[in-house]
Every structure is written in C-alpha cells, then in structure tokens.
Amino acid sequence: MNKNSIIKNKITQLEKVFQVPARLRIMSVLMANKKADFSELIEMLELTRGNLSMHMKMLEGCKYITIKKQFVNRKPRTTYHITSLGKKDFIMYIKMLEGIIASSKVT
C-alpha cells in the first residue's frame, strides 16, 4: 500500500468516525478534560444513555478511548479516558477541517 492510499484511508476513517456530531462532541469533552464519567457526558452532551453507549463502543473500537468500570460507594461508575491515538487523530481531524476552510478561502 503506498503512502497516498494510507493517507486516503486515514482521512476516510476520520470522516467516518467524526461525521456524527455526537462523537465529535464526546471527543471534544475528552480532549478538554482527559476523562469523563458516563453520567457527566450525558449531562453535558444531552444524549440518551443508549445513544451514548453506542457511540462509546464505536470510539472504543477505533481505540480512541479506554473504558474503566468500577464501583464507587457500591454504585457502578464508568469512566472514559482518551487514548494517545484518540488525541492524535482528533487533532489531525481538526487540522483537516482547518485545511478545508483555508483552501476554500483561497479558491
């Protein structure tokens, strides 16, 4: 596989992952706070539990986040942490967006 096709694949992957605004917002929260609880994300992003779980599974599948489940005061607590790959790809996506905007201004 040559370099161009690797880049194209990466861009396709980024577009696929971040085309959904909810996933973009989840990653933004994790970028800002490094970690967040499930309930915290629900409150902040105003998503349903099922919806958030689904997006989290998708992000975990991409290795963008890690999930830590524990019991605090006998109550379950799920915490999500952003991985270094998640950070790297999110920054790459932002740069890509900036690039698109900049190129549209030039043309």
Partner: peptide
C-alpha cells in the same frame, strides 16, 4: 473514499468542537 467534506460542514464541525470544549471547561 467517502463523500468529501464541504467547507460549510468543516466550519460547523469546528464550531461544534469549540462550543463543546468551552462548555466542558467552563
């Protein structure tokens, strides 16, 4: 390769990111 991102969508995504980060840290 998927559909190419439009500048409008890129701007909207950037604005979503900015607003969410502001809210998360504020």
């Amino acid at each position: 390769m998927g559909k190419k991102l439009s500048p409008q969508k890129a701007l909207k995504d950037l604005s979503t990111i900015k607003n969410t980060i502001d809210r998360a840290t504020g």
